[in-house]
């Protein structure tokens, strides 16, 4: 598999930062960065990462299922993650999540037909003091209200 030069550079660095013979350590970081570029963790990517890190593909399969941020199906271009854990729950996270479902017309871990959005109800994302919180891809949004979320979605839609 070939990746962008930036990703290749990251991979190259990843293979050097762990102790000699411990390149298995790079498996998860490689998958995390590669899935952003590939869209999700494909079979091909599994084999590729296994090869580069010198592990069995099964050892990659073992971690994919374990870590909740590794996805084997493509997400939307904008992956909307709504926290409903305790601090967010107390400040309206659940209503926000229900609202997002309605606005986007999709359920948990589903993708809109145009592939633009996907939605996920997530656990605490470390924004509790500024709850309720939403993360779009890797961007945090704090003190989110239903109106703010609608605006955000609209903006993203325009951005494409």
């Amino acid at each position: 598999m070939t990746f962008s030069p930036a990703l290749e550079a990251r991979f190259a660095k990843l293979l050097t930062i762990y102790p000699e013979g411990r390149q298995r350590s790079a498996v998860v970081p490689m998958l995390m960065y590669a899935q952003d570029e590939v869209g999700c963790v494909t079979r091909e990517l599994v084999e590729e990462v296994a090869r580069r890190c010198g592990v069995q593909p099964m050892q990659v399969d073992e971690v994919i299922g374990y870590y909740s941020m590794l996805h084997t199906k493509p997400l939307g271009k904008y992956h909307i993650q709504v926290c409903t854990n305790i601090s967010c729950l107390l400040t309206g996270g659940e209503e926000l999540y229900e609202h997002a479902k309605k606005t986007l017309g999709i359920g948990n871990k589903e993708v809109t037909p145009d592939g633009l959005f996907s939605l996920e109800e997530v656990e605490c994302m470390g924004a509790c003091s500024w709850a309720p919180a939403v993360e779009v891809n890797y961007d945090f949004h704090h003190h989110v209200t239903c109106e703010k979320l609608d605006r955000l979605i609209e903006d993203l839609r325009k951005l494409k």
């Binding site: 298995r24 350590s25 790079a26 998860v28 995390m32 374990y66 870590y67």
Partner: peptide, 27 residues
Amino acid sequence: LYVHTGAGAYECGEETALLDSIEGKRG
């Protein structure tokens, strides 16, 4: 000094699970 990214797992905050995780295994 290096940064290692997690991938979504609360349990990886437990110190020994973190160690397995940084070794490229399940946490």
